[in-house]
């Protein structure tokens, strides 16, 4: 039972009734997943980011023996680096993909994302200022696009939808946002 102190009451009128109540199960999950190819895109992006440290880790054992550093240190460094690579290239994209959900309703957009800290966001359609699509080189190669949703405060992104789907979604959000526009901030 949600206390009257959370919703529905005010300093002046404490007798007002509770408007809404909620439980853990009410934190409903948005319906749609991203395109599965996003995992490839994320893996490529992560791979590019770790390629230099990976090269260092590969040549480090050889350098270490020349510099007189004990072999176990070089091995531990290599193992650590490989662990990081497996995590960011192999495991994290899979978890991110599973967590990522989105849903565009008539009156709001719901997003759920996060690797370790999970964030669920609600954006009322009436607050959408504009919407656009964008794609980088990797996404373009895979035929995917991001949809950026701008409010007056910040930007939200639904990543990696097929180009056609992203364009349709962009137009749909723009139409819904226009319908619900209240003419300002």
């Amino acid at each position: 039972m949600i206390s009257c102190a959370i919703v529905g009451c005010s300093e002046r009128a404490p007798e007002q009734t509770v408007l809404y109540t909620g439980t853990m199960s009410d934190l409903q999950t948005p319906a749609n997943h991203l395109d599965p190819r996003v995992k490839t895109a994320w893996r490529l992006e992560a791979g590019l980011a770790v390629i230099v440290p990976l090269m260092i880790a590969i040549v480090f054992p050889a350098l270490a023996s020349m510099m007189g550093i004990p072999g176990w240190i070089a091995l531990a460094a290599f193992a650590l680096m490989m662990g990081v690579v497996i995590l960011v290239v192999g495991i994290f994209p899979e978890i991110r993909y599973r967590r990522w959900r989105w849903e565009v309703r008539e009156e709001e957009i719901r997003l759920r994302e996060g690797l370790i800290i999970v964030t669920q966001t609600v954006i009322p359609m009436v607050r959408v200022q504009h919407v656009d699509t964008a794609q980088g080189p990797i996404m373009r190669a895979l035929g995917l696009s991001d949809v950026h949703i701008w409010t007056a405060a910040n930007k939200h992104t639904i990543p990696a939808l097929t180009d056609e789907h992203a364009a349709d979604l962009r137009d749909r959000i723009a139409t819904l946002a226009r319908v619900t526009d209240d003419g300002g901030l």
Partner: peptide, 15 residues
């Protein structure tokens, strides 16, 4: 549960 209540309060399309 309080956070969900606030989310429902805010949402134009509450659960």
């Amino acid at each position: 549960s309080d956070a969900v209540a606030i989310e429902n309060w805010y949402s134009p399309d509450p659960v």
